[in-house]
Amino acid sequence: MRTVKQLLRNPLSLTGLLLLIFFIAVAIAAPWLAPPERPREPYRIVQHGYSPTPAPPGVDNPFEGIWRVITGQAKLSQVKPFGTTEGQYDVYYGVVWGTRTAFKVGLYITGATLVIGVLIGSIAAYFGRLVDEVIMRLTDIFFAFPFLVAAMTMAAVLQPRLGRGLTTAMIALIIFGWMGYARLIRGDILSVKERDYVAAARAAGAGHLRIIFRHILPNAIYPTLVVASMDIGSYVISFSALSFLGLGAEVGYADWGQMLSFARAWIPRLHQFWWIVLYPSLAILLFTLGWNLVGDALRDILDPRLRGRTTV
């Protein structure tokens, strides 16, 4: 509770929280903000024709255009509040539904890496000795690869088997994302596992699994959870980077990185077609800024070395 209060008092983290709340609202309200033409495939960006040249917004004031779409006064194809990309994909539609993609990608990747990291880290710390040594050297090997480069390689190799899409890129990112959590939880478990109540549980005849899940993890997992929750933003960045390179979401999928990859073909004329860069960029920037503002403040609040010393 104290943490929440401190977050609300700091203007930076308050801005971050408001940004996140805004994006959550957009994600929830997506079907209403940008009604899909094919309700079965809402993530396919609505296309207004097939012309290769991006078309400008149909209204001068984007907010007015959005209002007319929401209230049903006009169709998306008439208004085009944020214009269209090449292939006439509607930028506004993509940005709105891309919010859902961002949350989905961020939560899935964080969830999966967290589970894998916690499992591997706990096994290493609990069993110790040889198991610990082997697992930690294995983590070192995974750490020997720069994250994005490794994920790019993995996605490239997975593509022929799984096809281009969300799943492929997410698997690639998950494979190289778990090590930090494994190290973190290992350290915390090492300090918890020598406590008296663990020894008591062992003396009472509890099995390995019961000791790990009932007695050790609940007392050691909190710092890892905080760190992981703050990584959601950076996973969204990494995913959008893969999409931008052409290794993530397929063409026409409502994903910010994928929408920006359209801009690569128009670089000498970007000042003419500013809307294909500006809106998706703004979405990514504000989304990750929201997470980072909250994360930065949380780190200051929870970092024990700085706690209570902020008045220097």
Binding site: L260, I267, L270, W274, W291
Partner: peptide, 15 residues
């Protein structure tokens, strides 16, 4: 920190 480098790059190219 919140800028993916390719977004920053695209915006710089634009301007």
């Amino acid at each position: 920190w919140s800028f993916p480098s390719f977004v920053y790059g695209l915006l710089m190219l634009m301007v």
